[in-house]
Amino acid sequence: MPERATVADADQLAELDRACFAPGERWSAQLWRDELEVADRLVVVQRDRDLMAAATFAVAFEIVDLHRVLVRPTHRGLGLARQLITAGALWAGDRGAERMLLEVRHDNTAALTLYELLGFTTIDTRRDYYGTGLHAHVMQCDLRGMTRGTNQGDHRG
């Protein structure tokens, strides 16, 4: 089950980040500490013995931004990302948010597939956002549709 991360998790989050992202895209332990200390943020994690997955969200008024989703390569395809995103949607909805926004690289087909299954649609493309030739799709989803009928035990993605 997803649980809220604490500042004590910052080093493990940075280690998970190293397992998931290329050197230029990684967040340091200090960036994770900063993320964990901000009042409008939620960092949720899935644990086994170590952190298997994490996601971070920021809510402002009626919008929640999905900042980052990390799933350890050995644990992908088990539904962890979907569970974390749903937990973030429920948290944001409780705070009055109505829709979720995210940016995803145009060539991240696994993430794009998951986001589309969750009801996200592309509303814009930011050319060269991640570097030359690496575009970002800006996607949004109505939180009411994402969280309606949520069953935490039946998630894949």
Rank of each mutant, 00 (worst) to 15 (best):
T150Y: 15
G131A: 09
D128F: 14
D142A: 13
T121S: 11
G79C: 10
D65C: 03
D9T: 04
R47E: 05
E3Y: 10
G157R: 00
L118A: 05
D50Q: 14
R95Q: 08
L90S: 11
E98C: 12
R41V: 00
C141S: 11
V138H: 05
G88Q: 00
A54P: 00
L117T: 13
G133C: 11
L78I: 09
T6C: 14
E15P: 01
Q30A: 14
V45F: 07
R127F: 09
D34R: 05
L90V: 15
F57P: 00
D128C: 14
Q46C: 12
V71P: 00
T122Q: 12
H155M: 12
G157K: 02
A8M: 06
H67P: 01
W27T: 01
I63Q: 14
D128K: 07
W27C: 02
Q140C: 07
A60W: 13
N108R: 06
G149Q: 07
D94C: 11
E98I: 10
Y129G: 03
A55M: 04
T150N: 10
C141T: 07
A14F: 09
T132Y: 12
P23V: 10
E35Y: 04
T125Q: 07
R105G: 15
C20A: 06
Y130E: 01
L51E: 05
L114V: 09
M52Q: 12
L80E: 07
R105Q: 09
V138Y: 09
G133V: 13
A60S: 15
L118P: 00
D9R: 03
R82A: 14
T122V: 15
L134C: 13
T109S: 14
A81R: 02
A10Q: 05
A53T: 07
G77E: 05
Q83V: 11
V64T: 13
G131E: 07
E25V: 15
L51Q: 02
G131V: 09
L16E: 09
Y130H: 00
R127L: 11
T56Y: 08
T74Y: 08
P23E: 13
D50I: 10
G79E: 11
G133T: 07
E116P: 00
A92S: 01
A8P: 00
G153K: 02
R148N: 05
A60I: 14
V43A: 13
Y130G: 01
T56K: 03
V44T: 14
R68E: 10
D124M: 05
R95C: 05
R72L: 08
W91T: 03
G77N: 03
E15M: 07
W32D: 04
R82P: 01
M100I: 04
L80A: 12
R95K: 07
V71H: 04
V138D: 04
H137V: 04
V44M: 12
V45T: 06
R33A: 14
G79W: 12
R47N: 04
E25M: 15
G145I: 02
L13G: 02
D34K: 03
D48V: 11
G24V: 04
L80Y: 14
T74V: 13
T109L: 15
L51N: 01
H67V: 04
A136S: 05
V38Q: 08
A60K: 06
M100C: 11
V69L: 08
M1W: 11
A54W: 01
F120D: 01
A54G: 00
T113I: 10
A29R: 00
F61G: 02
H106M: 12
A136W: 03
W32E: 06
Q83E: 15
G157I: 07
G119H: 01
